[in-house]
Write a protein that binds this DNA or RNA. Structure first.
Length: 264
DNA sequence: ATGACAGTTGAAAACTGA
C-alpha cells in the first residue's frame, strides 16, 4: 500500500507531469495540494483514465486539495472544525478501502495544505497558528478511533534545523519559528509518527526547492511535506522516501513527492 | 541592496507563494 503526497502547484499547469508521475510510481493513494482549480475545472477524466477514483476540494486560483485512490473511498470531511469563516480549501479527508488478501481493511487519509504564514507580522501568521490548532484538535479526535490513519500534505513546517539548507537564514520565517515548530510537535506528541524522520533521521533531505536563484541545482531545499501516521499506521510502516525525480523534469512543481509503504 | 521564478487573473500589473 503506497501512499504519496505531492504539492503540484496548479494541477492544470502540471497535468502532464502529474500523469507521468502516477504512471511511473503507481501510488495506491495520492494526496495532492495546491491544485488551484475549482471542482468543476478538476481534470477528472485524465486521472480516472489511469484507474483512479478522484475527490477534490477545490478553489478558484488558490489552494485546493485532492485525494486519488485506486480503490473506492468515501469522503469523511471537507474542512477542519472551528473555521466557520474560513473559505480556504486546505483539507480533505477520506476512508479508503484496502484489499489485504482475503478481506478488505480501511485506511483513513487526509490531504493537508497548511497555511504558509508569511509575513509573520501580518494576519497570516496567526491564521496559520489557529489552523494548526484546529488540525491538532481534529487529529486528537481521530486517534480515538484507533484506526490506521495517514495525515499527509504540505505542512509548511520545517520541523528542525536539519530540515533546511540554511537554518540561520530561515530562523525568523513562518515555516521555522519556534511557535510553528512547537505547534507541529504538539500534533506529533498526541501520538503521531512523522514517517520520513523515523526512517531517515540523518537530515538534509528536502521536499521543496524554490524556483529562484538556482535553489534546485544548489540543493537549497526545505523539508516541509510530511506524512503523519497514527500508531496503527506506524505499526505497518515498511518504507518512506522522497522522490526527487519529478522536481528534475521540465516545468516541475517547486515541491516533489514524498511517499510511504504500509503493510496493512 | 535588490531581484531572481512560476502560476492566476485577465489583458498590465498585482497578488500569492515558501
Amino acid at each position: 500500500m503506497k501512499i504519496a503526497t505531492f504539492n503540484v502547484n496548479s494541477l492544470r499547469a502540471r497535468i502532464a507531469n502529474v500523469l507521468e508521475w502516477l504512471r511511473e510510481e503507481q501510488p495506491d493513494v495520492a494526496l495532492l495540494q495546491e491544485i488551484k482549480c475549482s471542482d468543476a475545472e478538476f481534470p477528472r477524466l485524465e486521472i480516472e483514465a489511469l484507474g483512479y477514483h478522484a475527490e477534490s476540494h477545490g478553489q478558484k486560483s488558490y489552494n485546493g486539495v485532492a485525494i486519488l485512490s485506486r480503490t473506492p473511498m468515501r469522503i469523511e470531511h471537507r474542512a477542519l472544525g472551528g473555521g466557520d469563516a474560513d473559505e480556504q480549501a486546505r483539507y480533505l479527508e477520506a476512508v479508503v478501502e484496502v484489499p489485504t488478501g482475503e478481506r478488505w481493511k480501511q485506511l483513513r487519509v487526509a490531504s493537508i495544505y497548511l497555511p504558509n504564514g508569511n509575513p509573520v507580522d501580518s494576519e497570516k501568521y496567526p491564521y496559520k497558528l489557529a489552523w494548526m490548532e484546529r488540525l491538532r484538535s481534529h487529529a486528537a479526535d481521530l486517534l480515538q478511533l484507533e484506526h490506521p490513519t495517514v495525515l499527509g500534505g504540505d505542512y509548511n513546517v520545517i520541523p528542525t534545523d536539519k530540515d533546511v539548507y540554511d537554518p540561520v537564514g530561515w530562523a525568523g520565517d513562518a515555516l521555522a519559528l519556534p511557535q510553528t515548530r512547537a505547534k507541529f510537535r504538539e500534533i506529533l506528541n498526541l501520538g503521531y509518527t512523522e514517517a520520513f524522520n523515523l526512517l531517515h533521521p540523518e537530515g538534509h533531505r528536502y521536499t521543496f526547492w524554490d524556483y529562484q536563484a538556482g535553489a534546485w541545482q544548489r540543493d537549497h531545499g526545505l523539508r516541509i511535506d510530511h506524512l503523519l501516521l497514527s500508531p496503527q499506521a506506524a505499526d505497518c510502516l515498511e518504507k518512506c522516501d522522497i522522490d526527487k525525480k519529478p522536481r528534475a523534469k521540465d516545468k516541475p512543481s517547486d515541491h516533489t513527492p514524498i511517499w510511504c509503504e504500509l503493510k496493512l
